[in-house]
């Protein structure tokens, strides 16, 4: 992504002048390195907006916090985030008429961990292009960094680089061609016992903080089954089996509805490869029911429909 900060601020100013309640975007975190979600409501807030290759947060789910407003809400959407908005609209959780999408074409995001290793002193802007990253720090523009050295892993499997049907802040960018997810293939190729111990090893680190659920644009139930205590489906008890059930249930709940934005991987504090569960389901649904991966707006979710001639593999 180019540094789109200036056009974003202009756009935000115009929206707020037009009585928008808020513009949801990003601001530089105090560490001078990462970005963080930011809600611009006045000129001071607009002045803090940034939009560059550090702004990897998918903001769409914050729209749930604005359910009953009369005024519109502006929101910055990359290609992947636009699918998330469509997900929330399809689930009837967001009224699209209230949303003004601000489209940000994106050639890939920088990994904050890799960025920190290379620029511990902080950055002022990070731009990405098909060839690599251009980082600007307080000391000025740095020599170009190769794409592979900084790219956020999930951006290697980009499904949509430019949000469709929105007013764009910059020229459209084409998404790279995506092959099947390497991690899913790797795990699938393991012998069954190793697959079990791989996942059990991963799940044993889970602290059940539910960050993956809370950030997920496909997880928007008003009350989650894991928060219900009558009946107490899972409760707060932790243990390997409970955690397995939690993650497999959640993966299944978003099966075919997942927009593969990769936010679950990003927020997990203990580094679980959660998207490897979701991608597996997307691939299987695609293969079994001949559907696009991930879910695309205007199509029925694979588990919300059927065909008379669906395969019967084991029945």
């Amino acid at each position: 992504m180019k540094d789109n900060t200036a056009p974003l601020r202009d756009k935000a100013r115009a929206l707020l002048a037009d009585k928008a309640a808020c513009v949801i975007g990003h601001a530089r975190d105090r560490d001078g390195l990462r970005a963080r979600p930011h809600f611009a409501k006045d000129e001071r807030g607009v002045g803090a907006l940034i939009l560059d290759a550090t702004c990897h947060h998918n903001l769409a789910k914050y729209l749930l916090d604005y359910p009953y407003l009369e005024a519109k809400v502006g929101i910055v959407l990359k290609g992947c985030d636009a699918l998330a908005l469509e997900r929330l609209v399809a689930d009837r959780r967001v009224d699209r008429a209230k949303v003004v999408p601000i489209g940000a074409p994106c050639a890939g995001m920088a990994d904050p961990v890799k960025l920190q290793a290379l620029f511990p002193g902080g950055v002022t802007a990070v731009a990405s292009g098909p060839d690599g990253f251009t980082v600007t720090t307080a000391a000025g523009r740095q020599p170009p960094a190769p794409r592979a050295g900084l790219l956020l892993e999930r951006c290697q499997a980009c499904h949509q680089a430019t949000p469709p049907d929105t007013e764009l802040l910059a020229e459209p960018v084409a998404a790279p061609t995506v092959g099947p997810a390497a991690e899913v293939a790797r795990i699938s190729a393991l012998p069954p016992a190793d697959r079990l111990s791989f996942w059990q090893g991963q799940f044993s680190r889970c602290i059940r903080c539910y960050a993956c659920r809370n950030v997920c644009p496909a997880c928007s139930c008003r009350e989650c089954v894991f928060d219900q205590f009558q009946p107490n489906w899972l409760g707060r008890r932790t243990g390997l089996a409970q955690t397995q059930v939690f993650h497999l249930t959640r993966a299944f709940h978003v099966a075919g509805r997942c927009v593969d934005c990769g936010e679950c991987d990003r927020v997990c504090p203990v580094g679980l490869p959660l998207s490897a569960l979701n991608r597996k389901l997307l691939q299987d649904a695609g293969e079994l029911f001949k559907l696009a991966e991930p879910w695309r707006p205007g199509t029925t979710e694979p588990l919300g429909t059927y065909k008379l001639d669906d395969p019967e593999e084991f029945m």
Partner: peptide, 25 residues
């Protein structure tokens, strides 16, 4: 709060948070 996701990450990673619930199975 407007940024907060409402997950329990900070409390579960916090060395001093001690809130708990008691339940029966």
């Amino acid at each position: 709060a407007q940024r907060c996701l409402g997950c329990g990450l900070c409390t579960y990673l916090c060395p001093t948070c001690y809130c708990f619930g008691v339940s029966d199975e």
